[in-house]
């Protein structure tokens, strides 16, 4: 009887491989996340995407002590371990197919839906639970759902979402959302539309800090024309699209992580740009502006730690 299912599964010894139409995913058991995301033969991941909590301190954050009060999230952003992994095939939970359990599978394994969930514990005191659920559907789309479990004993969050480090520099990106750099308390002036941005501009604030946020985004398409594959000599542009799930998301696309921005005191101290860092965020703390030496952001624009956050988005090649 021939296979009619869309996805082929490789029950590896250290990873779960999923091949779909023009796409291939490798979920790692040991590295705590999605290790490979290939669309049309092009790799999109440098390291596994992880939940992200930190934004590089803005001048207002420094002035009102926010970064000091919330510094646990810096550690959580940099260091996070997976506590548990669960897999479902066609909506049926299976025992995590690590060796020798995977001996029961063979070379011809198929499904229409593969779901793997990583359960993390944050490196905070107290720790709280964060999970990231990846669902590969028959079309090859990857649906990502990230959830944060509220805990009243933790400080306000800077951001919550997923950070994707992409192996090479993007030539640019397109998105449907608001014009310019926007934050929850600075977005009314942003005009809705579809925008193309060339390169990965870092807003050149005197001291590098969080920048390049785009609120209320329906989709984001990241465009590259290089890979790190030594046998890939093509310069033809290719792209990956992030689309909203239940609600629009916020994102930034920069050549730096929050920590790289955090470390520099001048723009010229930032590393030579090599990679693309895309943060897809379900919650963003505002920037504020009353003054830069103490005034807090309006409480309506905080991310209180005691409330659950759940958001989702879809990744696909285009």
């Amino acid at each position: 009887m021939g296979n009619t299912k869309a996805l082929q599964i490789v029950y590896g010894d250290g990873t779960l491989g999923v091949t779909g139409p023009d796409c291939h995913y490798i979920f790692s058991y040991s590295r705590g996340g999605l290790e490979s995301l290939v669309v049309s033969g092009k790799e999109w991941l440098y390291r596994e995407p992880k939940p992200t909590f930190w934004r590089a301190t803005t001048d207002n954050d420094r002035g009102n002590g926010f970064s000091r009060k919330s510094l646990q999230w810096l550690g959580a952003d940099m260091f996070i371990d997976v506590a548990k992994i669960e897999v479902q095939i066609d909506e049926r939970p299976i025992t995590l197919p690590v060796a020798p359990i995977n001996n029961q599978y063979g070379p011809e394994e198929f499904a229409d839906r593969v779901q793997i969930t990583y359960f993390y514990k944050t490196a905070t005191v107290p720790a709280t639970a964060v999970s990231v659920q990846y669902t590969v559907t028959a079309t090859g789309q990857l649906r990502v759902q990230a959830s944060y479990l509220g805990n009243a004993d933790l400080p306000d969050l800077p951001v919550f979402g997923m950070r994707f480090v992409i192996p090479t520099l993007a030539t640019g990106y397109e998105y449907a959302g608001l014009s310019g750099e926007t934050y929850p308390d600075r977005l009314i002036g942003g005009k809705p539309g579809t925008y193309h941005v060339t390169g990965l501009p870092v807003t050149p604030y005197l001291v590098p800090q969080d920048c390049g946020m785009h609120m209320q985004t329906k989709w984001l398409k990241v465009i590259r024309n290089t890979t790190k594959n030594n046998a890939d000599h093509s310069q033809v542009p290719f792209s990956l699209k992030f689309s909203q799930g239940g609600a629009p998301f916020a994102f930034s696309a920069l050549p730096y992580t929050a920590e790289e921005l955090e470390n520099a005191t001048h723009q010229e101290e930032l590393p030579v740009p090599r990679r693309t860092v895309v943060s897809i965020l379900g919650a963003v703390r505002s920037v504020g502006g009353i003054d830069s030496w103490g005034a807090d952001v309006d409480p309506a624009y905080h991310i209180p730690a005691d409330q659950d956050i759940l958001f989702d988005f879809v990744i696909e090649g285009v």
């Binding site: 803005t58 001048d59 207002n60 002035g63 750099e181 934050y183 929850p184 308390d185 600075r186 009314i188 807003t203 604030y205 005197l206 001291v207 800090q209 969080d210 920048c211 505002s286 920037v287 504020g288 502006g289 009353i290 003054d291 830069s292 952001v297 309006d298 624009y301």
Partner: peptide
């Protein structure tokens, strides 16, 4: 003087 536009700022002007 208001809305101290130091770095990434000028949030909340609506208020």
């Amino acid at each position: 003087e208001y809305m101290h536009s130091m770095g990434n700022s000028v949030g909340g002007i609506k208020a």
